[in-house]
Structures are given as C-alpha cells and as structure tokens.
Amino acid sequence: MSAFKIAVMASGSGSNFQKLAEAARDGRIPAAIELLVCDKPSAKVVERAESLGIDTFAFNPKDYPSREAYEQEILNKLLELGIDLIVMAGYMRLITPVLVEPYYGKLINIHPSLLPSFPGLHAARQALAAGVKVTGVTVHYVDGGMDTGPIIAQRAVEVLGDDTEDTLYARIQAEEHVLLPDTVRLIAEGKVLLEDRKVTIHNS
C-alpha cells in the first residue's frame, strides 16, 4: 500500500508545519509530508522545510497574472506528486475553485477560534474584543469561503481576565499543535467521513 501523501500550505513561521512533519517522521501520523507550498519565499517555514529535507514550492504571487494562474501551477505539482491531503496551516490567502474543486474533501485548514465565531484575521483579538470567556481552535474542510467549511474537530481555550492578544494566542497555538496532527492522523487512517456538511469521526 502506497504512503498517504500530504502537502502543507503555509505563509509564516511554520510551527504547525513543524509539528506535522515531526509527527509524520516519528510514525505518529501514517503519512509522508511530501511538499510545502509557501507564498512568501523568505518565510521561516521555508527554512524549516529545508532543514527537514522536505521539498518546497515557494513563489511570489506578484509574478503571476492572477491567483488562478499560480494556483494552477500548485495544482499541477500536487497532482504530479499524487497528494492525498492538503493542509492549510497558516496560509494567509483565500483560495479559488482551481484548488478547492479538485481537492474538496481533501483540503483542510486550521483556524484559531471556535468557528463559526471569529473567522478571518486576528481571531484572538476578536475574541478579546467580544468579551467571550472561551475561544479555541478549529480544524475544518475548505470550501472556498472565509473559514466557512464543514468543521472536523475543535478544542476549547479559556480566556483569562488578564489575557493580552499575545498570551491568548500562545495558548491557542499550543492547542493547535495537538489538534492538527491528531486530526490529520484520523484522516490518514480513513476515520473521518464527510457527508454533505456533516463530519463523522470513527475513532476506534
């Protein structure tokens, strides 16, 4: 049986990418991280991939006439490698049907809130501004909208009275580092079923 192949899309420091790569390397995820896709060639996540020996496609969106143009190049690479799952881990761009349609149900994202609350940027800041007592982390399928796809898994994070955006986000990120590898493991093991917008997990 061929290995379950994963591509990760990221734009920043890549701490979630690192956790995924380590989990795959250590056998905690029955899969191989085959490719990093990054829209910022100078991002730290590119250094992480290189140090881990993972191939990288780093590109500058301004070099392409449209979003669809560079996504077509990404899609070609994914198909060439036989990628089974795309994980968006801090990829800071909305994606178009060029990627969503061929990979729907095989394309996930991690977001630092309990969706549908606080989609988009600065989720921890949004949570503090709203005065909520609990926020958290969500892993969801991508449907092309702004954090609107079917929810796979969530973990809660308490909001403390003296939290700043940085302290709250640090605790959220710690939960991301647990939830994302665990969810990817379940998907790789074939235990996650998507029917319409309902996700069922068979964790046995």
Rank of each mutant, 00 (worst) to 15 (best):
Ala130Thr: 00
Ile95Thr: 12
Gln72Ile: 00
Ala32Pro: 00
Arg28Ser: 11
Glu176Ala: 02
Ile151Lys: 09
Leu81His: 08
Pro65Ser: 13
Val139Gln: 03
Lys44Gly: 10
Ala7Cys: 12
Asp55Cys: 02
Ile201Tyr: 05
Ala130Phe: 12
Gly120Thr: 07
Asp162Thr: 13
Leu78Arg: 04
Ala89Phe: 03
Val178Gly: 00
Asp162Gly: 05
Gly105Gln: 10
Arg25Trp: 00
Pro150Asp: 10
Thr138Arg: 04
Ala58Phe: 11
Ser113Tyr: 05
Asp63Glu: 15
Gly136Gln: 06
Leu179His: 05
Lys77Glu: 14
Gln18Phe: 01
Glu195Met: 10
Asn109Ala: 04
Arg185Gly: 01
Glu47Asp: 15
Ala123Pro: 13
Ala58Ser: 14
His111Lys: 11
Pro41Ile: 08
Ala23Met: 03
Asp147Leu: 08
Lys19Tyr: 07
Val159Tyr: 07
Glu68Trp: 01
Ala153Gly: 04
Leu20Arg: 02
Pro112Thr: 03
Pro41Asn: 12
Ala170Val: 01
Leu52Gly: 04
Thr96Asn: 03
Pro97His: 04
Glu71His: 05
Thr135Ala: 04
Val87Arg: 01
Arg171His: 07
Glu47Arg: 14
Arg197Pro: 07
Asn109Glu: 06
Pro65His: 09
Leu99Asp: 01
Tyr104Thr: 00
Gln72Arg: 15
Val157Arg: 06
Gly82Trp: 08
Pro30Arg: 11
Gln72Lys: 15
Val100Leu: 03
Glu73His: 11
Ile83Cys: 08
Ala3Trp: 03
Gly27Lys: 11
Ala153Thr: 01
Ile108Gly: 03
Val159Asp: 10
Ser42Met: 13
Glu176Arg: 08
